[in-house]
């Protein structure tokens, strides 16, 4: 009988740990969101009243990086690789998309800010990354991202990098599941 109880408890641990392994997935997401890890931009697309009240401004460097995921064939690049900006002001940067293939394709851009702690101070008032892009065969478009760097940005952050990765979601698009709520 003793052995039966030990057996039951141990089986419960095994089942519990299997569940815990799966629980690590949502925990990982929540952890990244709380800590701003992974450069996931969680900040709102506008400046808070408190930030607006900060009158002290400073200059810093913002760099743009573009990547294509896996075998995404589009041409995707920023017009300028970097720009010097003043905190609290709004800027615009243009990005070029070109679909060189002979079929219509759908792409989705996922942003990431580095260093990760700077992500919440990077306010994008408008961004092509908010929605998916459909490009006809051979189509070329330019899309802007408008952004404000929060004056509350910690002093030790001297520059910010905005990285964009372009994904081919042509085969993945499902009517209701919109990836674009980032």
């Amino acid at each position: 009988m003793e052995a039966k109880r030990t057996l039951r408890n141990l089986t419960a641990i095994v089942v519990g740990m299997f569940a815990f392994g799966w629980l690590l997935v949502p925990m990982y997401d929540v952890f990244c969101e709380i800590t701003g890890l992974n450069g996931k931009v969680t900040g709102p697309s506008f400046l808070s009243e408190e930030s607006k009240a900060i009158t002290e401004q400073r200059e810093l460097l913002v760099q743009f990086m573009t990547h294509n995921n896996e075998s995404m064939p589009w041409f995707f690049d920023s017009e300028r690789s970097q720009m010097r900006v003043i905190t609290g002001n709004q800027y615009e940067a243009n990005f070029v998309f070109y679909n060189p293939t002979n079929k219509e394709m759908i792409g989705q851009v996922i942003p990431s800010v580095s260093p990760g702690r700077g992500a919440e101070y990077f306010h994008k008032t408008e961004c092509f990354c908010f929605e998916r892009q459909t490009l006809a065969a051979g189509e070329r478009i330019e899309l802007p991202v408008r952004f404000i760097i929060d004056p509350a940005l910690p002093k030790e952050i001297g520059s910010l990098s905005l990285g964009y990765t372009l994904f081919d979601i042509t085969d993945r698009v499902q009517p209701k599941n919109d990836l674009a709520n980032l």
Binding site: V14, G21, L24
Partner: peptide
């Protein structure tokens, strides 16, 4: 018994 189930999960 604590970590082999996690391996099975992954």
């Amino acid at each position: 018994i604590a970590v082999m189930p996690v391996l099975a999960g992954v």
